[in-house]
Design a protein around this nucleic acid. Structure first.
Lengths: 197, 197
DNA sequence: TTTTATAATTGACCACGGTCATTTTCGATC
DNA sequence: GATCGAAAATGACCGTGGTCAATTATAAAA
């Protein structure tokens, strides 16, 4: 039985998160330095690590927050009617992750989270994303827009795989000014979701 | 026009690599410490970084070496006849990568390398792997074992995506003693390579 | 052989994430 | 308000990867 945290602790946590968010705002995720966060927050370094397991734990909260916003937008939009529409629904998420390798790396660590008990923000938002995708695909199957020979859960995992593939490709190109991630994604999804023979 | 390296330099490089390989042998890839390598090799730390861009550069040579061996084995085996056989051909590679997250992370950085001019070992072996996969799929298409509506190149990339997906899943499970990566891979490949309607 | 340009190596130094024994603060109880 | 046990915060310290101006070894030219 753990006690309720003191007021002071919640304030410190909030301060750390808002400072970190501000730094990310102007330096990007990969520009975040623990020393800078604790300095601007006016606390000692150890304090940060008593609030978050490690730097990734802090990033996870920030990133999970953004993903949650994106998911809100996706849910509001409703199920797509075809693969092209599905692709464009995924575009904001792709653009967000493609913006910084740190995001991609962190999300990849959780891309297999299916278990319940998601005490981490990222895990929670990830599970929500898979659930949403599965719902969409289920709907699209019913509407006859995609293949029906596989459970939507499996198809959703495939979509995940291609999302990550496209993102990884994008980061490898490095300096290449290719098309948007979503454009790169579409042929894979078309092929993956096409009805079988 | 760069000059040929001196004898001494080649010896140092060889020494560094053999020491590193020995350490990996008994500590695993994630157990490798730069300090330990240079100490055992009897050189200064700066020397290592004049031979390899960074720690990953060293790891890339070691890992690229192993992947090359695996590819030799795969090429010797010839093209698979169906998806099940394809899966089992990929099993050794999966097992190798699944053995240590460091390998997975490093390979993922290069999983989009399609350009020529592969001065890095990993890039070279990666390109070779994609080429081999493409050849196999081309053969399987001709044999009528898989779908023919997409170019083998695209199908090969999809296989790549699923390889990475399965591996990522495996690392997320963490303590879970699931089935072999290859077993987890097969349903995805079956679905991905199945002829369309 | 001596000179000389440059290749190769060196190791003190830095950046950054993370730890933990110690100290400070909080808030419940008397 | 005084006391005290637990919660919170502290900051000196560590591990590890990576840098770079200075030094040493090499081989070609004089």
């Amino acid at each position: 039985m753990t006690r309720a945290p003191q007021k002071r602790r919640l304030e410190t946590r909030t301060k750390l998160l808002s400072v970190a968010a501000a730094i990310v705002q102007e330096q990007g995720y990969s520009g975040l330095r623990v020393e800078e966060v604790v300095h601007q927050a006016g606390v000692a370094k150890g304090t940060l690590f008593s609030h978050f397991k490690d730097k990734d734990g802090l990033l996870a909260v920030l990133i999970g927050d953004q993903v949650t916003r994106l998911l809100d937008g996706m849910e509001a939009a409703g199920a797509p009617l075809d693969v092209a529409e599905l692709t464009s629904r995924l575009a904001p998420h792709l653009d967000f992750v493609a913006q910084d390798r740190v995001i991609f790396d962190l999300l990849l660590r959780y891309s297999g989270t299916t278990a319940a008990e998601p005490d981490e923000v990222v895990e929670a938002s990830f599970i929500r994303q898979v659930a949403l995708l599965t719902r969409w695909l289920d709907y699209m199957q019913a509407a006859g827009a995609i293949r029906k020979d596989q459970p939507p859960q499996l198809l959703a995992e495939g979509v995940q795989a291609f999302l990550n593939h496209v993102l990884a490709l994008g980061f490898c190109m490095a300096h290449e000014t290719g098309p948007s991630p979503a454009q790169a994604l579409e042929p894979y999804l078309q092929t993956w979701l096409q009805p079988p023979g």
